[in-house]
């Protein structure tokens, strides 16, 4: 029987009087790999922020791992890779190890001290992403690709059951991008991690995700790629050529 990881019912979000999301209802089940796509300003990042509890809904309800959102406390089950990785201060005097360690603190109770097993977990994660050699480098000394890997390590260090990726590969070269997506595929297939991948790249989303959530303030389509690719209503909405672009790599 499918297990609901995320359940969204009649979700509405307004910024002042502007409508960002309008009556969204959908479920994400365990081991789903959902591609969240839509045009600029369609509410993708707003939806991600709502799932992470960063934005308060104007209406509707959400449950995460079966718990109503306001009461949800098990944030270590959720790994998050934010879109704006350059929004931090590049002169921040933290090392790569320190930044990756920040991913672990959602698992810790007050006063959130790290122990030896945490240090081992950090080392293992750095090795897995091939960045162990830069562990003691300052964050401001890294290239865009290295920085992105550090944030990926921070997002995955807890072995989260739900991974939310907001435009994760923008700073990565093709090889690292391919490695990143094979890692996600492995986590999805072998460890049954649930993944929500936000992307603008509709041409390649079918390569990675098993489900498509097309958003434009409201849900235009939510379902499997197979359903999307044969849907006449979607063909009318997007036009045959756009539908083909989304589907051709699936």
């Amino acid at each position: 029987m499918p297990v609901n990881i995320l359940s969204v019912r009649n979700l509405c979000i307004n910024y002042n009087s502007l409508e960002a999301l309008n009556v969204l209802s959908f479920d994400v089940e365990k081991a789903d790999y959902v591609g969240l796509v839509g045009p600029n300003g369609s509410g993708k990042t707003t939806l991600v922020k709502a799932i992470l509890g960063l934005v308060r809904p104007s209406g509707g309800a959400m449950t995460l791992f079966g718990q109503p959102m306001p009461e949800f406390r098990d944030w270590y089950k959720v790994g998050y890779l934010p879109q704006k990785m350059h929004s931090f201060n590049p002169h921040f005097p933290s090392t790569v190890r320190e930044v990756v360690a920040l991913g672990l603190i959602s698992r810790k109770k007050f006063p959130r001290r790290l122990d030896k097993s945490d240090e081992t977990a950090i080392t293992r994660m750095l090795e897995m992403l091939n960045i162990a050699h830069i562990a003691n480098k300052l964050i401001g000394e890294l290239s865009g690709g290295q920085l992105q890997k550090v944030f990926i390590a921070r997002a995955l260090i807890n072995e989260p059951e739900l991974i939310i990726l907001d435009e994760p590969t923008t700073a990565l070269d093709p090889e690292t991008r391919e490695n990143f997506f094979s890692l996600m595929r492995e986590l999805n297939l072998k460890q049954r991690a649930t993944i929500i991948l936000v992307t603008h790249d509709i041409g390649t989303i079918g390569e990675h995700a098993s489900k498509l959530l097309y958003l434009d303030k409201k849900i235009i389509f939510y379902g499997s790629f197979d359903e999307f690719c044969v849907s006449d209503s979607m063909s009318k909405y997007f036009g045959r050529s756009s539908q083909h672009i989304i589907c051709h790599k699936h």
């Binding site: 992470l52 509890g53 960063l54 406390r73 944030w75 959720v78 998050y80 934010p82 929004s87 931090f88 201060n89 921040f92 933290s94 320190e98 930044v99 360690a101 920040l102 991913g103 603190i105 959602s106 810790k108 007050f110 006063p111 959130r112 001290r113 790290l114 921070r154």
Partner: peptide
């Protein structure tokens, strides 16, 4: 006592909030 909370919040407020 709040060392890691403060470090996380100072480094990346959005991620810190998403960590609870």
């Amino acid at each position: 006592f709040y060392y890691h909370d403060i470090l996380s919040l100072t480094f990346d407020e959005e991620f810190a909030k998403a960590s609870g």
